[in-house]
Write a protein that binds this DNA or RNA. Structure first.
Lengths: 234, 234
DNA sequence: ACAAAAGTGTTGACACTACACCCATGG
DNA sequence: CCATGGGTGTAGTGTCAACACTTTTGT
């Protein structure tokens, strides 16, 4: 079967940018390569698309291999296709953007891939154009989190509003007014009070909320306004 | 040079969704195929990525071939990668989204490709997954135009506010209040009054504006609010 | 009782909608 | 001088940022 004889067949890679949040910092799951090429250097988790595999399945496979997780939040970000982006051979790379609840990951799998969670500030240089991919993913996270309720994907099932606030402060690297933030989030109607309180606090215990999954799915594509307007002029 | 012996080489296609606006309707530039495969059916303009060509250059090449235009507004939309999306051979397709000023296109080139401008409502069924690509592009246009000043890319260099309004009404298929729209757009500071008036009007002639290109580029990534809030809950 | 963190109330600034009104143009 | 369409004024409403105040908890 060769209907397009003169066209070039090209390697199609999948690279995954995986974000987590530990309660204080946004972190990336990066790999210290113990394999060729570029052995010893840092890179994103990746792999090649198989001939008989849907693109989204390829991304799910690679994410599962590293984290042990399925059904996590994944978006396709962009496809990178400079001729010499991989010096070994012409390769087009489709970049995926994933958000996970950092405590759910499979520590064994991460260890076996020689991967680590690294804060955005302390991240090392990366091979190829992976640096550019990460920068773009960070921009995308900032953009999308201001308008859509994706922050929840980084938090555990039950969370407090102050935790959520710390997450947004970490994403944008700015302080947010506690009181206005709380009201803004509650007014979305996406939060359900579980009735429980956060127990690891030495002062007033914050209420534990969970996401109203039905409303979340229904209204995901609405526009919200999760950030102070001042942020939006950046 | 074969550093990745076990990986599959795959055809990489580029498909282009090209929007225009004729003053009344949003239109798509589609091709009635006079070549195989699927000869006689309608499709997007496309082609294969060459071995020695950057992905973005490939898109620019294909757009130039059909429209005769360079330096137009292009975004990468998404890469489609279902195994059987092209029955001829496994092909991954990178979809690009372009906005052009409809009067600038090269009619000869369009004709020689057997292409036509077709309104969204009257568009025919398309081959493969091109239908899905178009639907996604329409959604993207609605989304992006509400938040960023991309509408200008569809208008001629000098335009009136009523023209701009008709464009937005066509995108969202709703009526917009003339007076509020005018003020909202002027308050962005992106419009420069050219001092000229629209001459093809039989009543009061509207002022001709042009885009403040410097501010446009500076503030493109800011969030705006080009649509009435009521639209945003869709 | 006090310190620290969570949560509630209030107010002024500003932006948005809706609608009344004025201006320019051609027949 | 009237019909049509472009452009401006304004009042009511709602939302948001800012900040004072109250509540809960462990020591």
């Amino acid at each position: 079967m060769n209907n397009y004889p003169q066209a070039s067949r090209i390697l199609v890679a999948i690279d995954c940018i995986i974000f987590g949040f530990d309660g204080k910092d946004i972190k990336l799951l990066l790999i210290k390569r113990n394999f060729e090429p570029e052995k010893g250097k840092w890179s994103l988790m990746g792999g090649f698309l198989n001939q008989d595999e849907d693109l989204s399945d390829g991304a799910a496979r690679i994410l599962y291999n590293l984290t042990g997780l399925k059904d996590i939040y994944v978006e396709q970000l962009e496809t990178f296709g400079k001729v010499n982006r991989d010096p070994g051979e012409r390769t087009v790379s489709v970049v995926f953007f994933a958000l996970i609840q950092i405590d759910d990951h499979d520590a064994e799998a991460v260890k076996s891939h020689n991967a680590s969670w690294i804060t955005l500030e302390s991240r090392p240089g990366l091979i190829f154009d992976h640096e550019q991919m990460v920068n773009q993913a960070i921009e995308h996270l900032k953009y999308k989190a201001a308008l859509h309720p994706i922050g929840f994907e980084l938090l555990p099932e039950r969370f407090t509003i102050p935790q959520l606030q710390k997450l947004y402060e970490a994403i944008y690297n700015i302080p947010i007014d506690r009181r206005n933030f709380s009201r803004k989030l509650l007014s979305t109607g996406l939060l359900i009070d579980t009735g429980y309180k956060n127990s690891n606090s030495t002062t007033k215990k914050a209420a534990l909320y969970k996401l109203d999954v039905v409303k979340y799915k229904e209204k995901f594509h609405s526009f919200w306004n999760f950030m102070p307007d001042s942020m939006k002029q950046s």
